[in-house]
Computed example of a mutant assay.
Amino acid sequence: MLEASSGGRLFSVNPDGSDKKVVVTGCRVPDGVAVDAAAGHIYWTNMGTPPENDGSIERVDLDGGNRATIVPVGITYTPKQLHFEAVGRKLYWGDREGMRVMRCDLDGSNVETLVQTGQGGEDRRDERRWCVGVAVDPVGGHLYWTQKGPSDAGHGKILRAGIDLPAGARAAERRDVETLFEGLPEPIDLELDLTERMLYWTDRGDPPRGNSVNRSPLDPPDGRRTPEILLTHLMEGIGLALDPDGGLMYVTDLAGNVYAADLDGSNRREILVLQGNLTGIARAVLPPTGTGRRDD
């Protein structure tokens, strides 16, 4: 599943770029997308009109039917990357101008703020506080997120904390937050390969470290984390989806391209080009329709 923010639409394609189908139109600057194939649902975030507090999260069936808003305007400010956590049956997202990492149940109830990096208009103007990418490790018990910083400024961070707030703690005063990387060009979306215990991310910043896809072990034995640059020369890379079983990654950029590559960055190829400003991407093995399986 792919999102084009410039056209306000959500569409699906096969892994080779074939059989493109528009699933949803009329979205208000869509960004993150997640699929619960077993339950037959697609979820996505609408950024709304930054810097207005008018973001939302919507859901549709796999065929685009039964569209519903599950997190209405006024609850999340500018929701960005969306993560479906299948074990706990929760949705997690980064709220950029809201300066938060949030989650809710799959019907939109029980909205929680897990991380709060600032309060009010003055803090909101500090892009170092903006939370964008998010990923969850239910086995290790960690929540990961990016704070991207100003464009190309080298103030980006990747952080992690426990999935749940510690007893008695507040989202703005957590003591279990660990900074994994800092001084990054402009980190955006995150993905985890939980089998190989690897963290992947896109970076929109300037070359040589920016406009790239990177990875690092989640728990290096020597404690040292050095980003391994896998792909470069993206046109402002945003979305990232992994297929660990197939050994593949899929990446979108704002120039409207979708790339496929092996997990080590080799065998890079374009599977779609010039599709508008592409943002989020999610991979899902969908139930068979007619003959054969569709892998979007």
Rank of each mutant, 00 (worst) to 15 (best):
L2H: 00
S12Y: 02
S12M: 11
V13A: 13
N14V: 11
P15T: 14
K20P: 09
K20N: 08
V23T: 07
T25C: 09
T25F: 11
C27L: 15
V35P: 02
W44R: 09
G48R: 01
E52G: 08
D54R: 02
S56M: 07
E58D: 12
E58Q: 14
R59N: 09
G65H: 07
R67V: 08
A68H: 09
I70K: 14
I70N: 10
G74F: 03
T76E: 01
Y77I: 01
Y77N: 07
P79V: 01
L82H: 02
L82A: 05
E85M: 10
G88S: 14
W93L: 07
R100Q: 14
N110H: 15
E112G: 07
T113Q: 10
L114V: 09
T117C: 03
G133I: 13
V134S: 10
V136M: 02
V136I: 13
D137Q: 05
W145S: 09
Q147H: 05
K148E: 11
P150A: 12
A153P: 08
G156Y: 00
I158L: 12
I158E: 05
L159I: 06
A169D: 08
R174L: 04
D176W: 00
E178T: 06
T179M: 07
G183E: 12
E191H: 08
L192K: 06
D193G: 11
T195S: 09
Y200W: 13
T202Y: 10
D203N: 09
R204I: 09
R204P: 04
P207R: 11
N211W: 07
N214A: 13
R215K: 10
R215C: 10
D219A: 07
P220E: 06
R224C: 07
L234N: 04
M249K: 08
M249R: 05
N257R: 02
V258D: 01
D262L: 09
D262T: 06
L263M: 15
Q275R: 12
Q275V: 01
L278R: 08
L286P: 12
L286D: 10
G290P: 03
T291D: 13
